[in-house]
Simulated assay, not measured.
Amino acid sequence: MERSLRGFTGAGYDKGRPVLVQAAWFAVLHLVFVKWWFPARWRPAVLRAFGARVGRGVLIRRGVRVHWPWRLEIGDDVWIGEDAWLLNLEPITIGSDVCVSQGALLCAGSHRRTSPTFEFDNGPIRLEPGSWVAARAVVLRGVTVGRGAVVGAAAVAHRDVGPGSVVRTGAAA
């Protein structure tokens, strides 16, 4: 199939807030939120101010990027490590006692590979309580990581991960 990216329309995708709110979020994100000097204890409050639902005891380290805070729900006692990226074109729900480690990517956006114009094929992500997305792991759109499950370092979860299961790279454990 030939691609014609010039014809991309993004049909059916709603960013969820007016352009001025989007611009304000991107300014705060890039000028303050991701910076090493911005106190970790203030990051949950900033996310709440932009519409995220964030529980108690949430620790968000420096360099964490959240695409749309208003599409984010975080439970209690969650850790999000340095340089994690929450690309939440659709909702991302993170249950309580979840760890999203350094450099992890939660990618709720994608494209239809059969679309000549590469239109969106997005889907929500859910991390159930007690799960762990380890360093540089990737969770793709539409995936639920079950209670107590682990997506190991550098692994890719491209389909649901059952409760207590472990997804790892091809290397021997």
Score class of each variant (00 low, 15 high):
N122C: 06
G109P: 06
L89M: 14
C107K: 12
V100T: 05
L87A: 13
W85A: 12
I94F: 01
S101M: 08
H111K: 05
L89E: 15
G103I: 06
S115W: 04
E128K: 12
D97T: 11
I125V: 08
E119C: 08
R126M: 13
I80T: 05
V98W: 05
G130R: 08
R112T: 12
G81P: 04
S110P: 03
G130A: 06
E90W: 03
D121P: 06
G95I: 04
V98K: 01
W132S: 05
G123N: 06
L105G: 14
A84T: 00
G103S: 07
L87H: 13
P91W: 05
G123F: 05
E82S: 14
F118H: 15
G130M: 08
A108S: 11
F118V: 12
G95A: 03
G109S: 14
T117Q: 04
C99A: 15
C99H: 13
A84W: 00
G81A: 03
R113H: 15
A104R: 02
G109M: 11
E128L: 13
G95T: 02
W79L: 14
S131Y: 14
D121W: 15
S101Q: 07
G130I: 09
A84E: 00
Q102L: 12
V100G: 08
S110C: 10
S110L: 11
N122I: 04
C107V: 13
P129G: 04
S101G: 10
S110H: 09
E128F: 10
V98Y: 00
L87V: 10
N88R: 04
S131A: 15
P129I: 08
R126A: 14
A104D: 07
I125R: 01
T93H: 09
R126S: 15
G103K: 06
H111L: 00
D76Y: 02
